[in-house]
Amino acid sequence: MIDIREIEENELMDLFDIEEISFINSYRISTLADMYGKPVYKFLGIFNKNRLAGYIILLDSIDVYEVIKIAISPNYRKKGLGKKLLSSVLKDLDKNLILEVRVSNDPAIKLYEGLGFEKINIRKGYYGDTGEDGIVYLFTIEN
């Protein structure tokens, strides 16, 4: 059974495990715990039979939400869970949402464009580890 809900504090280590596997420059558990304690961040998880399969971290930046991180555990990839999680977020928005993605991340780009995100900018050399560009996408809510 798939469930989407806020992540509880005692589930942060499960989130961290997915974070470490998914990102070259992963956040430290202390960074995640610090973010978790601040009301401007929202941590949502997608669960399969009560096991964390993926997560999204949103930052409420006053006039827009920003996706800070989104990741699905390798065990659950290519099953539509990323789309299900992001679609759930998009349904409940009360303001626009922005995110940024590596130009080489074709599966993510396909997902974002398929959900109606619009490319608004390229950040040249954005990723310090590879010098790769980042694409900024915007999802605009309907008024």
Rank of each mutant, 00 (worst) to 15 (best):
L15K: 05
F43T: 10
E66D: 06
A71K: 08
I57C: 04
M1L: 02
V101K: 01
E19R: 09
T31W: 08
V40T: 05
K91L: 11
I70R: 01
E9R: 14
K69C: 04
N105E: 04
F139R: 05
L52Q: 10
L12S: 02
S73T: 04
N96A: 08
I21H: 06
E132S: 13
I57W: 10
A71E: 06
L86Q: 02
I62N: 02
K124L: 14
P74V: 12
E118K: 15
Y127R: 09
D106F: 11
K79F: 02
V101Q: 02
L52V: 11
G45P: 07
N96M: 09
F47G: 05
L59C: 00
G116V: 07
F117W: 05
G114H: 10
K119F: 04
S88M: 09
M13Y: 12
I4W: 03
F16A: 01
A53V: 06
M13I: 12
D94Q: 07
L111V: 08
V40R: 15
F139K: 03
M1D: 11
G80S: 06
E132Q: 06
K95V: 14
I56M: 06
L115R: 02
L115N: 08
E118C: 10
F117Q: 04
S61Q: 14
G125Y: 11
G116I: 07
V136N: 04
K84E: 14
N121A: 09
V89P: 04
S30P: 01
G128V: 10
G80P: 02
L12D: 00
L99M: 07
D3W: 01
F23H: 10
D63E: 13
E9V: 06
E9T: 04
N10D: 13
S87W: 05
E19P: 01
L12A: 01
G131Q: 10
T140I: 13
I46H: 10
